[in-house]
Amino acid sequence: MIGVMAVLILLTAASLAVGSYPLTGKDILHSFRELLAEERSMPTRVFWGLRFPRTLTAVLSGMTLGLCGGVYQLVFRSPLASPDLTGVASGASFGAALAIVLGLGSSVMRMGCAFLGGLAALGMVFLLVRFSGGGRTHTYILAGIVISALADAGLMVLKTLADPERQLAAIDFWTMGSLASVSSAKVLPLAVLTVPVLTLLLLFRRPVVMLSLGGDDCRAMGLSDRFWRGGLLLLATAAVSSCTAVTGVIGFVGLIAPHIARFLWRYRGGIYLILCGLIGAVLLLAADLAARSLGGGAELPVSIFTVAAGVPVLTVLLCTKREARL
């Protein structure tokens, strides 16, 4: 836990400093002093305009993806569950692509459309679950697959309609995820949406763990599994949806962060969910650092690095088989 915190602080510092305009520790301290000043120096403007929002977004999104990944895996009782499962990623991609194709220029508009797309996908999943009268774990998974497929089909239609020069590239870039376009205007709504949800999820950690025992056991102990499963998924998915709206689709963080947490902590109670969140933040910060420093001046999609890091980690966990019961 302390180790993970230390790595997180180290990476946060690095993320604040590194970039095409490097900042020193002195610059950063100076920026805090100049926060309210009228005239800002160049380093201060870089810090508050670019680095700080970007780092904060990485930390918030990483935490959300990691923590929600942990919640999904417990609630769905499956080590394969991840936030993409309920069709949020596909729905948000569809929303963003729609905004791009319709030429809704501003990035905030695009973000809003992506968020609505994600929520619409979630709403449809819940409708489908309700309609089928199930409410058990695999009903959600099946409904998620159906809605994902629907959104993906819609995305393909949009891609064929898109202007191949600019729009198609923008869509593709968006579906690979990037923190490059983050600005302070986007961070605020993100923080407003994710921080309360994460707090709630941490407060609800008892029901989350109880759900991992399955519905019959839950009801025998007085936990209404349908109500809690639905409510927790709604919260987690709304948070993930708002992150996806800002950063685009970021693969694998929500899947592997809980596995790393299990490997380190070996226990699902107590701080497990917090640890999932912290590890998610570490992963995303590291991936973002790589994305902006390894491209030789160009910004690379962050999913390249999260997936590139995720595959070996998951492979190692699979092979050691200590805890990963796949």
Binding site: S212, A220, G222, R266
Partner: peptide
């Protein structure tokens, strides 16, 4: 459900093998 579980509870045939608890 919660109120009911203060009056009656079931010991199931088996409880899940949940690692980490």
């Amino acid at each position: 459900v919660r109120r009911r579980a203060s009056l009656v509870t079931t010991m199931p045939q088996e409880i899940p093998v949940e690692a980490g608890l």
